[in-house]
Design a binder for these strands. Structure first.
Lengths: 199, 199
DNA sequence: GATGTTTTCTAACAAACGTTAGATAGAAAA
DNA sequence: TTTTCTATCTAACGTTTGTTAGAAAACATC
């Protein structure tokens, strides 16, 4: 790896972390640079603007989680049940979000607050990831694991939203992301109410 | 209502809306004032600081949703099932969040990004609302509607997190908050998978 | 070591920020 | 109408921001 590439990546790593922690507007270029023992103006050698930095952070954030989910699903046997596939995808998503990626966390936390042009630039990779989930759920519904009348659009938004919301309260001292994923999957897939036996 | 009270409220309404839309740091006092056809310095007659404004917005945000849930539950007959109580509370929460309260939305969106002192000032009312939900769920579990082994702490966080996540994608053109609440309640309470009949 | 290229520093700019104190205008009371 | 009180404007302050262009330093090549 060339020096410039390594430096660029360091800057992005730091930016992702700071954006995730403090939001977009509250993080200055001087702040990012200072965390890397550099001056703010130096960042312009590597990036054209603050917007380019945040655009990259947002895109990488989705790509990381998308790849994690794809890889986890690819590692399953072709005979895996739909229940297992959904659980596996959830676990991969939560792992990326909670334990591996400031980038993904930053995306979740601040997408709604970045300039419109930046949001627009992120939509393509975002839609691809959403499609990945839609495929998972559609296959389950087609196979009969999910009720035919269930609106998968809502389910997908709910699933992803629920997982992303863990960002605001997940505490590594209270368990690991994969344990949380298992609890989540149980709750979401099976529901939290006991089924009445006489209904 | 005195003039000062009315003006103060107008400023808060606008601040809640702008914070909700753009995050904390990106909203300036001059921006809030301009939206009310005033100058930035004028806000200091009514509030001591930007932090006082955001503290008020956050607190009101929780109080609104808490009151909505309390009122909705109080209107139920005492014989209402736990399923109904949970559904009612969810509907009230989503109504407040999605249709009535920029304050609640602002809280959800930016709590994680405000200064630590501001977060700390919001914790009391926040905890009271969380307690409200814990009570709802504990009653359901005690009555046997929720499995005894289910970790209610996680369920509560998941429920509230899921509802709050709707902020990022709810679209009034695709349905009302109460319809969404019904779909949500079905999905969360009953799960999204069809139960295998021979398990 | 000299030269060329890459990378960072630096000073500066215009704009924006939260905040303050006094001036001014508007409203209420006498 | 005059006086008092309330509410907003205004100019200013020190600080911060994203950005630019040229200088300087670091690195690579011959």
């Amino acid at each position: 790896m060339k020096k410039a590439e390594a430096t660029r990546l360091r800057i992005l790593d730091t930016a992702a972390r700071l954006f995730r922690q403090n939001g977009y507007a509250a993080v200055s270029l001087r702040g990012i640079a200072a965390a890397e023992k550099m001056q703010g103006g130096s960042l312009y050698y590597h990036f054209r603007s603050k917007e380019e930095i945040i655009t990259d952070v947002l895109n990488i954030g989705i790509e990381i989680v998308h790849r994690a989910v794809d890889d986890a699903l690819a590692a399953l046997p072709p005979t895996a049940s739909h229940d297992t596939r959904i659980r596996t995808a959830m676990e991969a998503h939560l792992q990326a979000l909670l334990e591996h990626s400031d980038y993904t966390s930053a995306n979740v936390r601040i997408f709604g607050q970045v300039p419109k042009a930046v949001q627009k630039a992120n939509l393509k990779v975002r839609r691809a990831y959403e499609e990945c989930w839609s495929d998972i759920l559609a296959a389950a519904q087609k196979a009969g694991a999910i009720n035919k009348k269930t609106d998968l659009h809502i389910v997908r938004l709910m699933l992803i939203g629920t997982m992303n919301a863990t960002l605001e309260w997940f505490d590594p001292k209270r368990g690991t992301a994969d344990k949380l994923a298992a609890q989540f999957a149980d709750n979401i897939l099976n529901g939290i109410l006991i089924k009445p036996e006489n209904s």
